[in-house]
Design a protein around this nucleic acid. Structure first.
Lengths: 358, 358
DNA sequence: AACCGTTATGACATCGGTGTCATGACATCG
DNA sequence: CGATGTCATGACACCGATGTCATAACGGTT
């Protein structure tokens, strides 16, 4: 590997001048610059970030801790889409000329301190902590040296965080359903201990309240368990109870559940959307777009969350915090309206609409 | 940040002794070790990997280039599961006490040289290049300094690579179908220009040949286009042609396509699996397990491929190549047999089997 | 007692960049 | 014409580890 000294020798200048050409932090004569640049090209010189980091204390690395990669099998509910979080963050970070160092908690909190240690070794400039689903976390070890942003999770210490706007998105979806003529709206919820469950039910209720539609609690049933045991029977029973309350549309806690509901409804000979409308949550394209009919779903804006979090972190690192920037940011996603929801009024032409609403 | 000098001062020893305690590469008196260790704990000392890298030329970093993260929207066909590749590799690499540096090509080959440059800066010890789907690549820039392993792709220079055994897996699936009494096996294939298409059709034919079942080419129809344009109509027509050839089972090129076929068959009033069996490819759990009935599918063993590739790379780095280790390794996945395939003989008790075959 | 081998430790140089400061060549100004 | 300022460049130390070599203490041999 060529070093800055080799380049300097070939170009007939001092190493410091080469450094100046590389970094552009001081004026360099045009001719000198040219000589240096051709020497760099000739030697295929690449500066060592180790040496640079040592001197300047800036590694150009951002650490990310995630269960998104390894835990997918365990937290089946979370599924894969949270990888979009990584994508969103990666994009912003690459744009700032930094590189993402990814470590994986393996789904266990015990591993986290070791990962933070690794990050410290590599002198990362900041850390993104990504959770598999919207929840509270308790990071035992402090990480005071450098900034950290929590993504898809929050703690009680007021660490800056970025969260999905569950309440708002569910509100938008149910509000849209009501505006489309539905008033008996079934809801197969997440397990109650999930933060997202509470928030979304709040949104569901607010949509009813603001539209002056009463809520029948019979229409709300828990549709999933935290562990996958007997999930299928549970859903069957929950769907049964919801159907007895005579809804015209069934909201599901996620697209995966909606996919199952498609199968169950068809087994009962109920056609979608003619006899029953169905909506999901997550807007997990792989499912929502390819089910037949296409599934209406509220987007869980993972990519946007990742980008926002990375942005926030970079601002914390550079110290250019926005005035009045809140510790905790909510990110909203749109509702993707597809054919699984039928508009219940005279005008049937809009039945096969396929568009997105903000 | 505390340095090794701070620790040395507190422990009353030389920095070199602290280094010895950290690395255990030379004997240290028990009492001295104790003093050093408590000093380390007191200062919360973490060694700087930058300094270590500079001196020893070993960064402890493995680079990974992937489109898996950012390209998911573009190569919709590839979908998300290739993130399991990252997972598999990550696990092996973490186990070797190294850290994964992830860069993203953004789905464009033009970005790759810049990423390799970044990796060179960080002195990565090796590189994994991951493709979004099984294909040939042409890496313009050479990367001779350090080892590289291609994953899910191959080149003509004979760079070491790890590939899915498409032929073998499709063979196993079709062979299993024939053993379950099917002899007219429809197949909605990938676009023909894909490597995976050719290989899988080879497997399909070999299964027929080895079981003495003739192949009716009418049963083979292209079910997807490389671009998503009009994909739905194409699939409809292809399915139509396949059905005219009177199959008892329809193999789909991937689970996503199978999910659509579920919808299309149901629209025609064809019940699965009573009137028609269906099989997919990928064993994309999110879909295969939650469709109703559960979808039989050949696993695309992404996690295993990632692990194998990382393993191969680590061996190349340490120079402990296995004797006769091939440049190119094929990884096979099992077939997951679920309810979507019906056994066509007197014994109907096995209809609701739910097990996996090797 | 002189010699040797082992154990335990430290002094010092070094990896490859960059921050600091000094220096020389010019141009500009009063 | 001397003073001042700007531009361009180099000398040198330093970041924080570790490899090399030297050294000291100690126990056992001949």
């Amino acid at each position: 590997m060529a070093t800055i000294y080799d380049v300097a020798k070939i170009a007939g200048v001092s190493p410091k001048t080469v450094s100046r050409v590389m970094n552009g932090d001081a004026p360099v004569n045009a001719k000198t610059r040219e000589a240096v640049e051709s020497a760099i090209a000739a030697l295929n010189y690449v500066p060592s970030s180790a040496a640079r980091t040592m001197r300047s204390q800036r590694s150009g690395l951002i650490g990310m801790i995630t269960g998104a990669i390894s835990s997918s099998h365990q937290f089946e509910d979370a599924g894969l889409p949270e990888i979009y979080l990584v994508q969103g963050a990666q994009r912003v970070i690459a744009h700032s000329n930094r590189t993402l160092l990814i470590a994986d908690s393996g789904g266990h909190a015990d591993g986290v301190p070791a990962l933070l240690q690794t990050f410290r070794e590599h002198q990362v400039e900041g850390v993104l902590f990504v959770a598999e689903y919207h929840r509270e976390v308790r990071l035992t070890e402090g990480w005071k040296d450098r900034p950290m942003v929590l993504v898809n999770c929050f703690d009680r210490q007021g660490t800056p965080c970025v969260l999905p706007d569950d309440e708002g998105a569910q509100f938008a979806l149910v509000d849209g359903l009501i505006k489309r003529g539905h008033s008996r709206i079934g809801y197969l919820t997440l397990p109650e201990q999930y933060v997202a469950c509470t928030l979304r039910v709040d949104g569901y209720r607010r949509a009813h309240r603001e539209n002056g539609v009463p809520v029948d609690d019979q229409l709300l049933q828990v549709g999933a368990l935290p562990s996958a045991t007997n999930e299928f029977d549970l859903l069957w029973d929950a769907l049964d109870r919801v159907l007895r309350a005579e809804p015209t549309v069934i909201c599901c806690a996620n697209d995966k559940m909606a996919m199952r509901v498609y199968g169950l409804l068809r087994e009962r000979g109920v056609s979608i959307p003619q006899q029953m409308s169905v909506a999901g949550y997550d807007d997990y394209r792989m499912i929502a777009e390819h089910l037949h009919p296409g599934l209406t779903s509220a987007e869980l804006p993972y990519a946007a969350m990742g980008a926002r979090a990375a942005d926030k972190l970079l601002r914390l690192i550079s110290g250019t915090t926005k005035p009045n920037e809140p510790e905790c940011e909510l990110v909203s996603g749109p509702v993707a309206w597809r054919e699984s929801v039928r508009t219940r009024d005279a005008n049937v032409t809009s039945l096969h609409q396929r568009r997105r609403e903000p």
